[in-house]
Amino acid sequence: MDALVYLIPTSLALGGIGLAAFVWSLRHRQYEDPKGDAERILNPEWDDHPKP
């Protein structure tokens, strides 16, 4: 049962990373335009060099 000492904190930390990522995406308005973002990735305009 010693493994629990590492496993429980590890699983909590992994879940916490997921939660933090979700909170970050909410805070940075990543869900404002889901349809537009899905289409923008098909846009070839900045394929060769990044947008200045």
Partner: peptide, 11 residues
């Protein structure tokens, strides 16, 4: 005179 324009396709 337009500085930036951004389309929101969802709305």
């Amino acid at each position: 005179q337009v500085r930036s324009a951004r389309v929101n396709l969802t709305l």
